[in-house]
Amino acid sequence: MTTPDNLKYTKTHEWVKAEADGTLTVGITFHAQDMLGDVVFLQPPEVGRTLRKGEECAVIESVKAAADIYAPVSGEVVAANQELADKPEKVNQDPYAAWMFRIKPADPGELGALLDAAAYQEVAEADKH
């Protein structure tokens, strides 16, 4: 449940969902929000910005920590979830509904290089120890 099978993942704790229109929706995983604690602030990337894979593109803050969000693939930001700026608690309530931004991938092949649920589960487990 905490790592849905229908999503792809990164080692830096983002989840990625392939949409029908070819864009990718990005958020942070259950494990990531659990490590951060209560999220108090979130700054998604600006729409129209071009990202390189692995580039820092968003910031997420809890009371005692701050983390960067990294672009899972290269591409252009086509949407950002501004609702989260006002209601950051949604990331804790349902991290897989609380998407942060959508990206139009420059190279759709990059999606294949992302982790599947089982591989990410291992990353998350290792992180706890």
């Binding site: 108090v40 602030f41 803050e61 809890s62 009371v63 005692k64 701050a66 960067d68």
Partner: peptide, 13 residues
């Protein structure tokens, strides 16, 4: 409050 701006949390950033 808003301590995530500060060095003891954000360090080099």
């Amino acid at each position: 409050t808003l301590q995530a701006r500060e060095q003891h949390i954000r360090r080099s950033k």
